Simulated scan of single mutants.
Amino acid sequence: MAIVNVTPDSFSDGGRHFSVDRAVGHALSCVAEGADILDIGGESTRPGATPVSAAEEQDRVLPVIERLARETDALISIDTYRARTAQLAIAAGAHIINDVHGLQREPEIAALASETGAGLCIMHTGRGRDRLADVVADQFDYLNRSLSIAAAANVARETIVLDPGFGFAKETVEENMALMARCDELLALGYPLLVGTSRKRFLGTLTGRDAGERDAATAATTVLLRMKGASVFRVHNVAINRDALAIADAMIAAEPKTGEEQVQ
């Protein structure tokens, strides 16, 4: 999943693709590098970012989605927590809704996903609420509430993926690394995992590198999280992460199988 930020202020690439032509060009270059999904966002989710109105968000993303729907067969995701933006994006050609508030800000997104059959990414966030001390217990607590909203709206299970939300109110290296080390525990919820560590601040703390220089560190987390069972990787640099996944998948294939796995 390639990140396409149509914003002036995203933490890593803000302003770089802040026009329809630049955003579309970047998205198509990501497809050429191996992206299967293009995640289009019109509002920065970095801490301290200036909020934008729904109308401004829509003005940024809808022309990009319309163009991409005509120019590529890649899946298109709309990165929004607003039900109206998601509705318009699907009408413009988007296939997936990526909600960074996990249906808990505008639950109407669940009904929209149910009605349209769109894919639905439900992300965990710790922002704006009290959290449990244990990082994984808080994941289960939050995501189970989100999944209840989805179930009440009759969202098809096979359309859902879960995102543990690295960096979203997980401020320290220790908290993010603990979540990474235990990420496989979230598979007990019964859904594929989408992960987004790309160029996050905790990688900068670990490596001492600025945001634009964190692709190697991102690729390392991609390998680690693939080994922990993650399925979808939301990244800025597609090529380096495709290479990292090729190695990780080869390693997984080479691992000795248990008797039960051999029977399957």
Rank of each mutant, 00 (worst) to 15 (best):
R234T: 05
I252A: 13
E255S: 08
A152E: 14
T80A: 00
T116R: 09
S12Y: 15
L62Y: 03
E66W: 05
V232I: 15
S231W: 07
Q262H: 12
F11H: 12
V136H: 13
R60F: 02
S114N: 13
P47E: 07
S146L: 06
R131M: 11
I97L: 01
L62M: 04
L103R: 07
S148Q: 14
G229R: 12
V161L: 08
D79M: 01
C121V: 15
E57I: 00
C121Q: 07
S10I: 13
P8Y: 03
F233R: 01
D73Y: 02
D59N: 12
V223H: 14
N237D: 15
K200T: 04
A94P: 08
S44M: 05
D21N: 05
E260D: 14
E171T: 15
G41F: 00
R82P: 02
G14E: 07
N5Y: 06
A254S: 15
K200V: 06
R157P: 07
V100T: 12
H95P: 03
F233P: 09
G41P: 04
A188K: 15
V223S: 14
P107M: 08
S53A: 06
A54K: 11
L186H: 05
V161N: 03
M123Q: 06
V100M: 09
L143C: 12
E261Y: 09
V100H: 03
A254N: 14
G204D: 04
R82E: 01
A54D: 08
G204T: 04
F18E: 10
A69L: 04
A211S: 15
R199M: 05
A153R: 05
A153I: 02
T45W: 01
V161T: 08
L224M: 15
L62P: 00
R22D: 13
E106D: 10
A27Y: 09
E33A: 13
R70G: 04
D36Q: 12
P47D: 04
A219K: 06
A181P: 11
G102P: 09
A69S: 10
E115Q: 14
G102H: 06
A230I: 06
A89H: 02
L206R: 12
Q139R: 06
A217Q: 11
D99F: 06
E57V: 00
Q264D: 13
R84E: 13
L162G: 05
I97G: 00
E43R: 03
T80L: 00
G196V: 03
R60E: 00
V100Q: 09
D163E: 12
I97V: 15
F11Q: 13
Y81L: 04
I78S: 01
N154M: 00
F166A: 10
L75S: 04
A27W: 12
